[in-house]
Design a protein around this nucleic acid. Structure first.
Lengths: 350, 350
DNA sequence: CTGAAAGCGCTTACAG
DNA sequence: CTGAAAGCGCTTACAG
């Protein structure tokens, strides 16, 4: 179904089907190769030729067929998003960001969730990339931390971008560095400033660099101000609500309860809320809580949760944008910095 | 990069690039048309020919190029998912379901969020569908309720499936009916059985059929048991947390407070929780609350929220599956039925 | 049941 | 700066 065409040119295009490069070439009185050059922004076209042809393309509503272009290029106009993060809001925000970058670019976003715990998930991604001849792939945490996955893409010659904490080296793909440490540092500063000294920490799985960064950033900041956190108050959990519940139960069973808890994400903070509410521990009067993610949950909980915002949508926009741009140096490193959103879940210790 | 090939046949395929239909035809000693027939499951192939060729395809790891097939078919191997629902978990579940159906089918999922409140969003979807030559489109609530959107797809000849409440007619697309009424009926039955009579209702926007279905299902069930809900206790909100807060404030300001509230979704129920907790109203002792969606929020809240589950992933699987299948009658109507998940947010009235 | 020819709508060499 | 020829990897008529 061709887009609206003015009657005069419309009559010269086979009705009922969209215009092709041949129609444009014929109507403009140039070769299809010239039209092709214009489509691909080649500088080897005279300005007035370009303008004449572009006007015609607009008039007949011509857009080149990505299938035909892909076949000739041996590469599709699809960007793959590969992820194994279970947090819905994070995924959706990342998708929105990617789509922001892809809008009106002719590229589309193909989603590919996977489970990095299964042994051959990398083969699954490889098939996806090869079969669809993807133009590029964004690797989203936590899969983005898997060096084997990145290596496979490099070997395939597929361009990719990785969203990773500091500490990664990559000569093949573009990196977007999330600086998780800084968010944790801000959380620590905030709790210290409120006067807290009896502080506990519920971390994500320390097999992930992001969890390590958050943990170290938090503990280092406390240590710099002379606050040591006893081992019993550092609990490694799994980023799930249930693991947050279990961790909180352990912390509250101790002789002396902490006056503040920093959680590696909001899900686990919600677990702390549940245990505290059930036990009659008032937040923030008896206990201050800080989360990480600034998920919708943070404002839905009561009292609303102070949490570290990650700018996920911006991250997605950069990660996708870098895959379709040709003008920038492909290997530069981009940075996204988190920051603390203060709400109602903290106050000075009792 | 071709998949693993045994040395004998590998040597007969140009190294460094994947096998094509020509390689398969040559190695199998048949014409490429025969290979094509096998790819497309044509019955016009002798059984032993088929088996021989299929074995060869497996051996060399051949998969047909979707770009080339798409160009020849004038239709891609992409399924579009069009949605304007803001709830992250719902979207992600729907995507997972769709991907369940598409796995190993050769089709991929391309996401297309849109904003049905902008005047020309339908043009955006049209461009998406036409330009990518989509094989099919799933319409997800609430965009799925827009008849103009469905009509546009029908006019384009693009196959589509719609996830809709009862009450829609569609001769062009497949419908997956969600039976929202039944979930609301279950919620009403449950509250009545607990002994509630002073019941309030916070609905979604009544411009949506789904919100109307839930509202009517709830009110009709109460009426059948002789319970009338005064107008002041029926508040139309907008499915957001904030609108739930505002609705709860209005309900609690009344002379007599209801003993139970049914909310059109969990977001608004979380708003009720916030207002109740802030006001010292104990859930479920003083107030019972029922939500709709069974989102992650439902179990994260404390006390955990009784809510209606929608089986979103199953819905997505059916909606996508119907677009790539050729064996079933395309216009049959599928049904997905909600049901109540009882948690800790309700008890008999004080 | 099988195949040779032409074509899908583009791009890549290659020439000028 | 511009173009004619060949090709990307498939499928659709058309023949047999």
């Amino acid at each position: 179904m061709p887009a609206r065409k003015s009657p005069d040119t419309a009559s010269r295009i086979p009705s009922g089907k969209a215009a092709t490069i041949n129609d444009i070439a014929r109507l403009a009185g140039v070769s299809k190769k010239t039209v092709s050059r214009i489509i691909n922004n080649s500088p080897l076209v005279r300005k007035d030729t370009r303008e004449k042809v572009e006007a015609l393309m607009r008039e007949v509503g011509y857009t080149p067929d990505p299938l035909a272009r892909g076949l000739a290029f041996r590469r599709s106009f699809l960007i793959g998003m590969v992820y194994d993060n279970p947090t819905a809001q994070y995924i959706v925000d990342m998708q929105y960001g990617a789509l922001d970058a892809l809008r009106d670019s002719g590229f589309e976003l193909v989603v590919h969730p996977c489970d990095s715990r299964t042994p051959n998930y990398i083969d699954g991604v490889r098939r996806f990339v090869q079969q669809q001849k993807l133009h590029g792939v964004m690797l989203v945490p936590r899969a983005s931390e898997d060096q084997k996955l990145a290596d496979m893409l490099a070997e395939l010659g597929c361009r990719y971008s990785r969203i990773v904490p500091v500490g990664f080296e990559d000569n093949d793909g573009r990196m977007i560095v999330t600086h998780d440490r800084e968010g944790a540092v801000e959380a620590a500063d905030y709790l210290l400033t409120l006067g807290h000294r009896d502080i506990a920490l519920i971390t994500g799985p320390l097999t992930y660099r992001s969890a390590i960064e958050r943990t170290n950033g938090f503990l280092d900041t406390l240590a710099q101000r002379g606050v040591e956190v006893p081992k019993a108050r550092i609990i490694e959990a799994s980023y799930t609500f249930e693991s947050g519940v279990a961790a909180a139960e352990k912390l509250f069973a101790a002789r002396q309860r902490p006056t503040a808890i920093f959680c590696g994400n909001d899900e686990m903070a919600a677990g702390v809320y549940k245990v505290a509410l059930r036990a009659g521990i008032s937040i923030p009067r008896d206990l201050s809580v800080v989360g990480y993610d600034d998920s919708p949950l943070a404002s839905r909980l009561w009292p609303s949760l102070t949490s570290v915002r990650r700018h996920t949508r911006d991250t997605g926009r950069i990660a996708a944008g870098t895959l379709i741009r040709t003008d920038t140096a492909p290997l530069a490193v981009a940075s996204v910095r988190p920051h603390l959103i203060v709400r109602d879940s903290c106050q000075p210790p009792p």
